[in-house]
């Protein structure tokens, strides 16, 4: 298990560096940053000056190397708009996004796992179809629309929950439900599919033949095997939440990473964009690593690989 973990860690590191390089390059070829920064009315001389100032005239590989070397030491450069370092900006926003995403994932799983398991056990009954209906509804309703509906109902009409800001845990409930609600359907479908397959397998029949109660058969013998693909999807979903909660953060005025990214992109604040890209890449790498290790723990056959 330890050797497996070390190998995965090494692989994750390589992937992390590669992803950050690709992200860095993409940003450079997406347009001339100097022209974008100088503005529409700038003269060629101004553009040249900016290019010089930010070191954009040097070969991309050199820029990347320097940036990566600084990044490793925790220096991601300075924002072009905020009087702050990029690292600082990200660190102050990160807790908001992490809290939101973690709560979102927990809510998604709280909806998806029981629904998926029940749908699988009651396959082809009205319960199964109702669960499918909920799944379709969750996917079909746009994030912002669902968020606004909740604000209207629980925030304004009933006044139960605060509608914006991130001061208390109550502020996170509606945005987290918005995020989780959207992720739940796909997790539920996968749980249901896995359970349906596993429940017909021979070892489940063996578990019944041993005289085990249904609860033990389902939760101990079936779920552990059915959940393996769900774990992998969870890491992807969590990554999406961390990097893609822009809409939710905007609707609920949460000052998180997604909001920062949206701001930085619209203002061409490229040091911030680069920093966030690196962060998101690292998120995915770390999450994939965690998913791999979790799966190896769940499924002993993976450990040999």
């Amino acid at each position: 298990m330890l050797r497996f973990a070390l190998r995965r860690l090494l692989l994750a590191l390589v992937v992390g560096i590669a992803v950050s390089a690709i992200a860095f390059m993409l940003l450079r070829i997406s347009g001339d940053l100097a022209i974008a920064l100088a503005g529409e009315d700038a003269s060629p001389a101004d553009v040249e000056r900016i290019r010089e100032q930010y070191g954009l005239n040097r070969p991309v590989i050199v820029q990347y190397g320097e940036w990566l070397w600084n990044a490793v030491r925790g220096d991601l450069g300075r924002s072009l708009f905020y009087p702050e370092s990029v690292a600082n900006l990200i660190m102050t926003r990160l807790p908001v996004t992490l809290t939101l995403s973690a709560m979102g994932l927990v809510i998604a799983l709280l909806i998806a796992l029981p629904l998926g398991i029940i749908a699988a056990l009651k396959r082809n009954t009205w319960i199964d179809r109702a669960a499918l209906g909920i799944a379709v509804m969750g996917q079909a309703m746009p994030n912002f629309w669902f968020g606004l509906l909740m604000i209207f109902l629980f925030g304004l009409a009933l006044g139960w929950l605060p509608v914006s800001g991130s001061e208390t845990i109550w502020h996170f409930i509606m945005p987290a439900v918005t995020l989780g609600w959207f992720s739940a359907p796909v997790l539920m479908r996968l749980t249901r599919g896995g359970m349906v397959e596993v429940m017909t397998s021979d070892y489940i029949r063996t578990a019944h033949a041993k005289g085990l109660p249904v609860r033990v058969v389902v939760l101990k013998h079936a779920l552990r095997n059915a959940i393996i693909p769900v774990v992998a999807l969870c890491s992807v979903q969590f990554g999406n939440m961390l990097s893609g909660s822009v809409v939710t953060e905007t609707v609920f005025a949460l000052q998180g990473i997604g909001y920062l990214a949206w701001e930085a992109i619209s203002r061409r604040d490229f040091p911030v964009v680069q920093g966030i890209l690196l962060l998101v890449a690292l998120f995915y790498v770390v999450l994939t690593l965690i998913a791999d290790l979790l799966n190896a723990w769940l499924d002993p056959r993976i450990r040999r690989g």
Partner: peptide, 25 residues
């Protein structure tokens, strides 16, 4: 029936390759 199964009457299946749970020792 659950009290009897695996206790006083037990079954051995046709497919040993798939009749054991892959995730438990």
């Amino acid at each position: 029936l659950r009290e009897l199964r695996g206790n006083r009457m037990a079954m051995i299946f046709q497919e040993p390759m798939t009749s054991l749970n892959p995730s438990w020792t």
